[in-house]
Write a protein that binds this DNA or RNA. Structure first.
Length: 238
DNA sequence: TGTACATGTAAACAGTCCGC
DNA sequence: GCGGACTGTTTACATGTACA
């Protein structure tokens, strides 16, 4: 490129995780195996991830791990965070699941989105919403996809609805990922108290309708029946 | 408050793979 | 062999932060 030519001002997006949480966890696990807990330089980290050194893509990958709180940055060096240790060397499935939920709430953008859509269906036009939050229009759909995949991985997306509490968290076994229902514990209660308000969620769908309700009070079976009865009125043909 | 530096992101370019 | 798709590298530039 001719350096004398007037260069177009580049659009800079607000910070966002460039990869899904699952990919970030895989990368941090790769770093742990290759370099241990650290500290190590960005160049060493990039090489451990299989790149020739610090480049656009490797820098992006490393920054994504920092976004999720899986790597700690101290000046020019990086080290594995306590969160990464809890995910990759968990004492129990429950502790690992709690750590995964903490990780997905680490990026400011993700935390905002989860709080905004708590108890609601993830909007189809999420890409447009991201653009309004400052994400570049060119990569908004990619960011939306990564967000959705991260939600699913963390167990905070159930039937298309963003959960406000980790009612269903994931655990892994040799066959892959399976869902596991857990009960609130002192540790995840603390997590909920710190990050998001506890709400009760109900969602259902029928012929031509879909409902997602969140409430700070328990949704009893009686209330659920009334809601369903009301929604089924929509199915009555004129 | 200004400056230097580190970091994060975008875009152009190059290399590789694969189907035709 | 050719061309398109995909992936990685290089580089320019914006932004945040530390420090004088």
């Amino acid at each position: 490129m001719n350096k004398d030519t007037i260069q177009k001002k580049r659009e800079r997006s607000v910070a966002y995780p460039s990869f899904s949480l699952e990919q970030a966890i895989n990368s941090v696990s790769q770093l742990r195996k290759a370099l241990g807990k650290g500290p190590y330089s960005r160049d060493e980290a990039a090489k451990a991830l299989g790149y020739s050194g610090v480049s656009g893509i490797s820098a992006t990958k490393i920054s994504t791990m920092v976004h999720f709180g899986l790597l700690n940055r101290n000046g020019n060096t990086y080290s594995q965070s306590e969160l990464a240790e809890r995910i990759n060397h968990q004492l129990s499935d429950e502790d690992r699941n709690n750590a995964i939920v903490e990780a997905i709430l680490s990026p400011k953008l993700y935390k905002e989105l989860i709080e905004q859509f708590a108890g609601e269906a993830l909007p189809v036009q999420l890409g447009n919403i991201l653009i309004r939050k400052g994400i570049s229009s060119k990569i908004s759909e990619t960011v939306a996809t990564n967000f959705q995949q991260s939600l699913e991985f963390s167990g905070l997306l159930k039937n298309g609805v963003v959960l406000t509490s980790p009612e269903f968290l994931i655990t892994t076994d040799n066959d892959g990922i399976v869902e596991k229902e857990i009960t609130p514990t002192s540790s995840n209660k603390r997590l909920l108290d710190e990050n998001i308000k506890q709400v009760y969620i109900f969602n259902d769908s029928g012929d031509g309708w879909n409902v997602a309700i969140k409430s700070e009070k328990p949704i009893t079976s009686k209330i659920k029946k009334l809601i369903i009865d009301a929604m089924e009125l929509l199915e009555v043909k004129e």
